[in-house]
Simulated scan of single mutants.
Amino acid sequence: MSIMKQGVCLASMEGVEPGVALFRSLGDPARLAIVRRLAAGEARVSELTAELGLAQSTVSSHVSCLRDCGLVAGRMEGRRVFYSLARPELLDMLAAAEVLLAATGNAVALCPTYGTDAVVEATAGAR
């Protein structure tokens, strides 16, 4: 996914699918929380479950998704699997997102389509 090519903005729908898939993989609150936790160091599913307060099946499903996306890797030690971020570039992207969020203030959180209130309403409506 190239945003700029030789200083020229590429205003086209062509080739955006991988970027859309990346942001969707990080768009779920549980998956983003898992990625943020793994940014601090490797962890097992049982540790993620305890730290994030989520069901084991939920954490396993989200870790599997992130692994399938190539964002998380597992390391076997005996019968235990320790998960970590597979790509250090993900840390750079998360740091850049934090800078962007700080620069925009509350604008993203207040967005009527994707902001905090919209996510809460969508989640409540799904029940």
Rank of each mutant, 00 (worst) to 15 (best):
G41N: 13
D92V: 15
F82L: 04
S25W: 07
R75M: 15
V119K: 00
I34T: 03
T49F: 01
S57H: 08
S57A: 10
A73P: 06
E17I: 11
A96H: 07
G105A: 08
A124D: 07
C9W: 11
S12R: 13
V63L: 01
R24I: 08
T58Q: 11
M93H: 03
A97I: 06
M4T: 14
T123Q: 10
R87H: 12
G53Q: 04
S46Y: 11
A95K: 14
L71W: 01
A126S: 12
A50I: 15
T123V: 08
E14K: 11
D28V: 09
P18F: 12
A97T: 10
T49D: 09
G78K: 08
V81P: 04
T116Y: 09
G125S: 02
R67G: 00
L10N: 13
E42F: 02
G78D: 11
V45H: 02
R37T: 04
M76H: 12
V8C: 08
Q56G: 09
M13L: 15
M4L: 15
C9D: 09
V120Y: 05
S84N: 10
A109V: 01
E47L: 04
A96L: 14
A40H: 13
A11W: 11
S61C: 08
A50M: 14
L48D: 02
E89P: 05
D28I: 02
A43P: 05
G105F: 10
E47D: 07
G27W: 05
G7Y: 03
G19E: 05
G19H: 05
G19K: 01
D92G: 15
C111G: 07
P29T: 10
C9R: 11
I34S: 02
G125F: 02
